[in-house]
Amino acid sequence: MTARRRPAFPLALLLRAATAWAVALLLFFPLGWLFLTAFKSELQAIAVPPLLVFSPTLENFHEVQARSDYLLYAKNSVITSVLSTVLGLLLAAPAAYAMAFFRGKYTRDILMWMLSTKMMPAVGALVPIYVLAQKSHLLDTQLALIIVFALSNLPIMVWMLYSHFKDIPPEILEAARMDGTTLWQEVRLVLLPLGMGGIASTGLLCLVLSWNEAFWSLNLSAAKAGTLATLIASYSSPEGLFWAKLSAASLMAIAPIVVFGWFSQKQLVQGLTFGAVK
């Protein structure tokens, strides 16, 4: 880690601050605009020039709840993201344990191969997965989404857990074995307490990814198992755009995860940069 240097001129400092602010505003702008639009009427929403000062209304939110059952979609989102995260952790943790502590000749290759599956566009697997879901009568069910979310996040989960586990000195697990632990005791009494930080941040990240996942929920679910992503999509209809309602629906969809992310951001950042900065 390099020490932070004090810039030589105040001008450099000013430029740096201005750039940082510009980038931050650029990233924040769509969200801010979304937020504003959600509280406008449809007419105000399409006004040119755009209105910055207006009297806010909650009408869009009532409309969204009246036209489509927000709570149903929200419930689906909660259930699919939580259960897919749990399922993913149950599959990823043993894999990461094996690769971190019992390295073989091909461990590295297997890790690379796992990650490479993430390079393939999801649409490439759409037809087979759709057919599989259809044949097993899982279309528009939460179960289908849980399984697909968990599997699509699995490579990232294995990688993250692997890099966390690799930072646990293997002698500690060996000491536990010498002390007489069974495999299950070794995992429960030593590995899990030591790896809890990594498991938590991996879980948090996957929760966010599953919540935001739109491709599979749009293609595999509809009115029954649809998540909030499908709710948003239903407001961008071909006949006429309803910017204000779309914004309200989007805001309602992302609000829970943004709040959740806000409170867990320390864990999340720590998880994503683990091993990189220490």
Binding site: P169, E171, I172, E174, A175, A176, M178, D179, V190
Partner: peptide
């Protein structure tokens, strides 16, 4: 029982 170089305490 083994005593490790790195101590390997829990």
């Amino acid at each position: 029982a083994m005593v490790f170089q790195s101590y390997a305490l829990y």
